[in-house]
Amino acid sequence: MLQQAIVSGLVFGLYFTLVGLGLNLIFGVMRIVNIAHGDFLMLGGYAAYWLFTLFGMSPFLAAVLVLVVFLAVGWPLYYLIVPRLQLARDAEMLSLILFFGLSQVIEALATIAFGTTEHSIPGRVLGIGPFGLLGAMLPKAWGVSALVSAIAVGAVALYLYRTRLGTLTRAVMVNRDEALASGIDTNRVSAIAFGIGIALAGLAGVFAPFMLGSMTPSMGVDVNLAAFAVIVVGSLGNPLGTALGGMIYGVSLLLMQTYLSSWANLLPNLMLILVLLVWPTGILGREVRRA
């Protein structure tokens, strides 16, 4: 049982890395908290559902489409919201309120559009039956979702550390004012990062039906809570720390489910409190942010 819980936790954690990745990228670059992150994930899930239901489109193709569309939506959304936000004295706090409002609007519109009942994509679409991994048996859909998550994390790492735009993005992450003073177009860099963050949320949403059972318009709240636990544990503002946070979250959650199941939903809150008290910058905090 222990082996099953740990291996499942690692795979589950990889998916939650993807869930938290976009949120952390946006916070790292812009120092704003996108409380509507879970709602963008939900929209990605519904997009995949409708593409599958209406056109029989595979989730892989839907993932590509969602990435492109959400990136295209995120980019202008940045210019609509963020520059104004950053004029405020306390942009972080104001962003919480503004994105909470946006979250409510998205949820309400989604409820009107999709109704309140659960929606999902059949698990068989990503493969039928279980597969063995390090002595544990896991659903094939988990394997596929985790693989996609790993590719997404790798792609973000490549973007940040192997491209010129990534270097500029990291410069903005370290100090926005200094980056601006050195001639970096911080708005352009941030807009792209914001678009990527929203696109990653959408991508996580495409695989949500396979990892989270089903979707409803109100799922964003629970997703946000998990995503915050993941990024705070890894390190707020350090996108790659999200991977560590995701793994710790996944393993802890499934160990809790195995041995203390009734208390499992306390885990994200406990992790947040513990990490904020012991490592306020997260486990990978300072070193990587300054890298």
């Binding site: 819980a5 059972g213 629970d222 499934l254 489910q257 195995t258 199941s261 009734s262």
Partner: peptide
């Protein structure tokens, strides 16, 4: 005989625990 939070969205590990 065990409870899980109502917000539980994944039962994979729990099903294996039950099977044991």
């Amino acid at each position: 005989y065990r409870g899980v939070p109502t917000s539980t969205s994944d039962y994979t590990v729990m099903i294996n625990t039950i099977a044991a």
